[in-house]
Write a protein that binds this DNA or RNA. Structure first.
Lengths: 201, 201
DNA sequence: CCGGGTCTATGACAGCGGTCATAGTAGCCA
DNA sequence: TGGCTACTATGACCGCTGTCATAGACCCGG
């Protein structure tokens, strides 16, 4: 979650993602983004001539790449790769954040979808692309673990759906219960989908 | 989804829920709610002296009651009650809407959570209450089908999580794929959780 | 010195947001 | 008729939003 000290443009995209995931797209102002990024206000129209829509879209895009990138790192850290282990790692990222930093933020892609699915088509498309970019490495990981290709895609969608929904519930309840629940209940199903190789369950 | 011609107050709450689930909380204006409900603007401060916050909270509350009420009707319509059948019915309500009316609207509770979880605690609490009120009848239905009480609660949370997450994906993609996917993949797991009575597999 | 990029700095604008203040109407009771 | 209550009707206020316009800083090649 920590972007190093890159250029002001990248910092603004990153800040936009952070503010969006906390307050939603509409409630996040351009001036606020610049201030949060420590960037001059004048840079907004310089780097994002497309206005707020461009900034939001890039933030959603960034979030999608970030989530996709995490999948690979989770895989590398797993002692032995199992579907349930991957899912647990994906969810644990959130439970860790919520326990250590509070329930202030959700998923920026979800926020963009809720706020812009109707009325700002480019942002809606950016959210769909982010979900797709996130789903692919998850599905690929599943096939690598021995899940048939057709089911891998479906199970990846199920995993992300359950995670996103549980995030909503957890944030509203200020309790990670929903997150731990979906991991516990979905784990066996995921591991049972492995057909070749010795399944650990 | 159609509220009959009740009083103006109820119409405004209903309209608020509709607009919120389409555009989000922040992007929904008070004047817009009144206009959508065909109610006079002056009635806003009369019926909702607590301002927008009160109106939003009541809309979220209404949505929670509505979702909870649907569960009972779904159960009554099932030829034989199975967990997967109930889940399929819950999801089908959304696929039907999306196929017939387009992908304009999402879940108002999700929208309220995304937009208000941080910064408006009463609305956050209202969302949590709505999720809880929705979860209970689902869990009760599962226990009635023979699911052990401890798992029933967890599976109800899983069902609602998967539904909410799939809603986000479906809306961003403008495709019901994610919804049908979670039904297909989650159904067997749900039915397998029935321990007593003949499971209808 | 000039010219020409990249980036920054402000100020203004027009619009809309929620909310408040105030006045008006309708009906009902005495 | 008067008076009370429920509800409606407007208009104004202030703050904030995204966006535009304009001008300044800074650096580099010539």
């Amino acid at each position: 979650m920590a972007a190093s000290e890159r250029g002001p443009r990248e910092r603004m995209v990153f800040s936009a993602a952070q503010l969006i995931r906390r307050d939603g797209v509409t409630a996040t102002g351009m001036r606020e983004v610049a201030a949060h990024a420590g960037a001059p206000r004048g840079s907004l129209q310089h780097y994002f001539p497309g206005g707020k829509e461009q900034l939001v879209n890039e933030a959603v895009d960034w979030a999608g790449r970030y989530a996709a990138g995490r999948v690979g790192r989770f895989l590398a850290q797993l002692p032995e790769p199992t579907p349930s282990g991957l899912f647990a790692a994906m969810v644990r990222q959130w439970t860790d954040e919520y326990r250590s930093a509070g329930f202030a933020g959700g998923c920026p892609v979800a926020a963009a979808t809720v706020d812009c699915a109707e009325g700002r088509d480019s942002t809606r498309a950016a959210a769909a692309a982010a979900f797709a970019r996130w789903t692919r490495p998850v599905a690929d990981a599943l096939t690598g673990m021995g899940v048939p290709a057709e089911r891998a895609e479906s199970l990846a969608t199920l995993m992300i759906s359950a995670l996103e929904g549980a995030l909503l519930i957890a944030r509203s309840e200020r309790d990670v219960r929903a997150l731990t629940t979906v991991v516990r209940e979905l784990g066996p199903l995921l591991d049972a989908s492995v057909v070749r190789q010795a399944s650990g369950g």
